[in-house]
Design a protein around this nucleic acid. Structure first.
Lengths: 229, 229
DNA sequence: CAAATAGTGTCTCTGAGACAGTATGAG
DNA sequence: CTCATACTGTCTCAGAGACACTATTTG
């Protein structure tokens, strides 16, 4: 057994949020080799007595500065090709986090610099290790999950308008959606959203009703991504 | 770094096939502690210089006795709760394999006994480690993937009839499907199946055209699971 | 012949896309 | 007032469910 126990295990986080017109990812600039100066997904080593999901939640809390961030955290996939980390045989369990745009700025404890970067502005050679692949897989997972789950609400505050939820879909998918059909879809799919009774004030246009997430975990029927063009 | 490298990494396989009226899983009876005598998913330790997917393919070939089994192999999820293996801190990367019913019987090299068991007949306390959880996740993944991918064909031989493909759906989902609507759906969804020109002989009823898998990787529109009852 | 399975056609209803029209705020 | 956004309603078309019906084999 002991001769088998020669792997290091890390968790890496694909933390996504919608900021303005961009789907953005939380990246940290590496201050030490390997890949010093390159951007990397936040993450770190799993403690020997620590569960994987606990390690992911711990890293998320450390990097965002929030103890119990709202939003969503799920396992994404595991990457363990030999040589992916020059320091040795490191297997990383990647997690995907979807968060509302944070009111507090990101304050990393161990990273030189932590920043939200638009996913579209990230080129593969900017990133350390195989993090370009992990980021790509995370973004694809998020795009797919918006179709058949109510997870888009994880990008929003606790209460949100139909328009804000539509912006999430438009930013993540990079597609324009018809506001009227979207409104009908959202409000007629059972368990998707629940009106809170509240109303927005001070914005442009007619005030909008506020909603919170419903009880549904899957959407029936799904919210289909429109075809390209 | 070296003090971090204290994990063992294994791959475990959820190997599913359709045999007769049952969705069945390949299980091996453990001949050594821990959990001696209990059933377990086939799997084993990952070599230090071996890629995870290679280790999974190697284990699959060893357990099925086939060098390049047809069908489908994909990563499922990773399980690493401390204490899940009494021998130490073992993280397992689970893979899901979908195979046609094997003409050759299973010949395990290292396992005392290897057998196909209907998934419905497997109770959680029969299984070692957290393999009940992994099996459940694998079955759910397979059921979900039949909806939006053409993966049902991975359960069939290279050439198959519409009726055989329908049986796969019926067995995996545990639902009856209307043969006529199913036929229309299969043959009109672009890229799902391609007629080979062949025809079955000797069966009961009218001979059926033979098909092989098409080029599509996702189904548009998806093949929706009928609601319960 | 009957039984069984393959395959086609037809009706209906749901739901999505397209888009007119109304409601209600800010400036 | 105009402009912007929220919301409602209406038309049409694609696709799924529920069948009737025909085709082709075995026994």
């Amino acid at each position: 057994m002991n001769d088998r126990a020669a792997f290091a295990v890390t968790v890496d986080l694909v933390v996504l949020t919608v900021r303005g017109a961009d789907l953005s990812v939380l990246l940290v600039r590496r201050g030490t080799p390997p890949y010093e100066g390159r951007w990397a997904l936040p993450g770190g080593f799993v403690d020997l007595d620590e569960d994987l999901s606990v390690a992911a939640a711990r890293e998320l809390a450390e990097e965002t500065g929030l103890r119990h961030p709202a939003g969503h955290l799920e396992q994404l996939a595991t990457y363990g090709t030999p040589g992916r980390d020059p320091r040795g045989r490191v297997v990383t369990v990647a997690y995907l986090a979807l968060l509302p745009d944070l009111p507090t700025p990101v304050a990393g404890t161990d990273a030189a610099d932590a920043r939200w970067l638009p996913v579209a502005s990230v080129s593969p050679d900017m990133l350390a290790f195989d993090h370009d692949r992990i980021l790509y897989d995370g973004v694809e997972r998020a795009r797919a999950k918006l179709e058949y789950t109510p997870l888009a609400a994880a990008f929003c505050a606790a209460e949100f308008t139909v328009g804000q939820l539509r912006e999430v879909y438009e930013v993540v998918w990079g597609r324009h959606l018809d506001p009227r059909n979207f409104h009908r879809k959202i409000t007629t799919t059972p368990g998707f959203v629940v009106p809170t009774g509240g109303i927005t004030v001070g914005d442009r246009g007619r005030p909008a009703r506020l909603f919170r997430r419903g009880e549904a975990t899957v959407l029936h029927p799904p919210m289909l991504r429109p075809p390209l063009d």
